[in-house]
Computed example of a mutant assay.
Amino acid sequence: MSHPAAPTSFDALKAFSFERILNEDPFTHSIILLGTFPVPGNLSERVKAVVRIERTILNADQGVRLLGDPGLLTRIKLEQSTDIYTWLFGWLGEERAGDVKVNIICPATETHINKASYLKQEHVLVHETPELYEKIVKPYIAAFPPSRTQWVENILTGLSEKDKILFNSPDFLILPDMKWDLKTVTSLYLIAIVQDRSIRSLRDLRRRHIPLLQSIRREAARVVGEKWGLGKGSLRMYIHYQPSYYHFHVHMVNANYQGNILGMAVGQAYILDDVISLLELDPEDGPGIYERMTLTYGLGDQHELFKALTESQSGEVKENKRPYV
Results as ranks from 00 to 15, higher is better:
Val64Phe: 01
Thr109Ser: 15
Val47Lys: 04
Leu73His: 02
Glu95Asn: 04
Glu134Ile: 06
Leu66Tyr: 00
Ala97Trp: 00
Asp83Pro: 06
Glu45Val: 14
Leu78Trp: 00
Thr56Asp: 08
Leu67Gly: 01
Glu128Asp: 11
Ser117Gly: 10
Asn154Gln: 15
Leu66Arg: 04
Arg46Trp: 04
Glu122Gln: 11
Phe37Leu: 11
Arg65Met: 05
Val51Trp: 00
Lys162Thr: 13
Arg65Phe: 01
Val126Ile: 15
Glu79Ser: 10
Ile104Gln: 07
Glu131Val: 09
Ile155His: 05
Thr149Arg: 14
Gly63Tyr: 09
Glu134Asp: 14
Glu131Thr: 12
Cys106Trp: 12
Thr74Glu: 13
Leu119Phe: 13
Arg96Thr: 11
Ile105Phe: 12
Glu95Gly: 01
Val126Lys: 10
Tyr118Phe: 15
Thr109Trp: 05
Asp163Val: 07
Gly158Glu: 14
Val152Thr: 09
His112Phe: 13
Tyr140His: 15
Ile141Gly: 01
Thr157Gly: 05
Arg96Asp: 10
Ala108Leu: 11
His127Ala: 15
Ser147Cys: 09
Ile76Phe: 00
Ala116Cys: 08
Glu79Arg: 11
Gly63Phe: 07
Ser44Ala: 14
Val50Gln: 04
Gly41Met: 08
Asp69Trp: 00
Pro130Trp: 08
Gly68Leu: 12
Lys164Asp: 13
Ser44Arg: 09
Glu161Leu: 10
Leu58Val: 03
Val152Ile: 15
Tyr118Asp: 04
Thr149Ser: 13
Val102Pro: 02
Phe89Pro: 04
Val51Phe: 03
Asn42Gln: 04
Gln62Asn: 03
Ser44His: 12
Glu45Ile: 13
Ile141Leu: 03
Val100Gly: 00
Glu134Lys: 08
Glu110Met: 13
Gln80Lys: 11
Asn59Asp: 15
Pro130His: 10
Cys106Ser: 13
Gly41Ser: 06
Ile104Leu: 09
Thr111Arg: 12
Ile84Arg: 12
Glu54Gly: 01
Leu78Gly: 05
Ile155Glu: 05
Ile165Tyr: 03
His127Arg: 13
Ile84Leu: 06
Leu125Asn: 11
Leu58Ala: 02
Gln150Asn: 09
Asn114Val: 07
Gly71Tyr: 01
Asn42Thr: 03
Pro145Ser: 02
Thr74Arg: 06
Ala116Asn: 12
Gly90Tyr: 09
Ile141Glu: 08
Lys77Ile: 03
Val50Arg: 03
Tyr140Cys: 08
Phe144His: 11
Gly68Arg: 07
His127Phe: 13
Val50Leu: 04
Tyr118Arg: 15
Pro107Tyr: 10
Pro70Asn: 03
Cys106His: 12
Tyr118Trp: 14
Glu134Gly: 05
Gly93Glu: 03
Ile141Asn: 02
Arg55Cys: 02
Val152His: 10
